[in-house]
């Protein structure tokens, strides 16, 4: 039984997700509708995208604490420059993600800075630069382009969230890339034993720079989807997403020590966290109590999962 579960840990996660949804249906009958499911998916998409980048890095044994700052920054740059051309503004936002990601990668891989320290530093720098930037361009009122609003909050046929049409292909690409591409293989390999990779002729730094750049880019994409949902670019847009993005990957079974995990689990992890959030909202508990519950449940899940898979 245990063995069966270990090999299909994702089944347990999905069951848990179903149980949580069932819990909501029990607490507030009539809540779980097609509309509610669509909303949940809509809100889970930015988290899932950001957690995707985080998954890549956890696989290499690294981590990125700058994803929330990148997401906020990308969204803000996009909104602040939309007036000069929406496509250029989009490129600017994505470019920021790529740039900070590359910086992270070079710091970690070439200068051997601890990933925690490096990404904490670049995250703080990004936030600081953003504050200065927002004060400089105060004249130019940020506005979120229409297509981004559609992406972040629109529905097809009134049900299917448009951001799924971005998230699903990205998810497929990530899952396929991790299992069926040379780069994906190397993410696991570098996380498992970098010395072995070097001895096998792999230039480890290239893999790491690629992974951090990819994570930065995904964080920027997540920020842009998020700003489409909120339709307001402020400087604390994605702050609350940092820890859930990491937690989604860990709950999904990706080891923080590297070498083990995958994106399928992360997706379910992101959905569980989103459903959990709406369950706690429904319970009408005071904010501190919600936070305590949220934290405790994440801890329980991570502990249970580790016992199951190890």
């Amino acid at each position: 039984m245990r063995r069966w579960l270990r090999e299909r840990a994702i089944v347990v996660l999905v069951l848990l997700l179903v149980a949580l949804v069932g819990g909501i249906a029990a607490v507030r009958p009539g809540t779980v509708t097609a509309d509610w499911i669509a909303n949940t998916l809509l809100f889970a998409a930015p988290l899932g995208l950001m957690a995707g980048g985080e998954t890549l890095l956890l696989l290499t044994g690294g981590i990125d604490l700058s994803v929330a700052s990148i997401a906020t920054g990308a969204a803000y740059l996009l909104a602040a420059n939309a007036a000069h051309g929406e496509m250029a503004a989009l490129a600017l936002g994505l470019g920021l993600g790529l740039l900070v990601g590359l910086l992270n990668g070079i710091g970690v891989a070439v200068f051997q800075v601890q990933p925690l320290v490096m990404t904490l530093g670049t995250g703080l720098m990004t936030e600081g630069v953003l504050v200065v930037y927002s004060q400089k361009i105060i004249a130019n009122q940020p506005h979120v382009p229409q297509f981004v609003v559609a992406l972040g909050s629109g529905r097809v046929f009134g049900v299917v969230p448009i951001d799924l049409f971005l998230w699903l292909p990205v998810a497929a690409l990530l899952m396929l890339g991790l299992s069926r591409s040379g780069f994906g293989r190397l993410l696991y390999a570098v996380g498992d034993n970098p010395l072995a990779c070097r001895m096998a002729g792999v230039r480890v730094w290239r893999v790491l720079v690629g992974a951090y750049a990819g994570c930065g880019l995904l964080a920027a994409v997540a920020g842009i989807v998020l700003v489409g949902t909120t339709n307001a670019a402020d400087l604390s847009l994605a702050n609350v997403y940092l820890l859930p993005a990491i937690a989604a990957a860990i709950i999904g079974g990706t080891s923080i020590f590297g070498g083990r995990g995958g994106y399928a689990g992360t997706i379910v992890g992101a959905l569980i966290l989103t459903v959990l959030d709406s369950l706690l909202t429904l319970l009408d508990a005071p904010e501190p109590v919600k936070q305590i519950l949220y934290g405790a449940i994440i801890l329980l899940l991570a502990a249970a999962y580790t016992r199951l898979t190890d």
Partner: peptide, 13 residues
């Protein structure tokens, strides 16, 4: 492992 060591092997396996 060494079969994917070069950049050009990073695509589809």
């Amino acid at each position: 492992l060494p079969l994917v060591r070069r950049l050009r092997d990073w695509g589809a396996l």
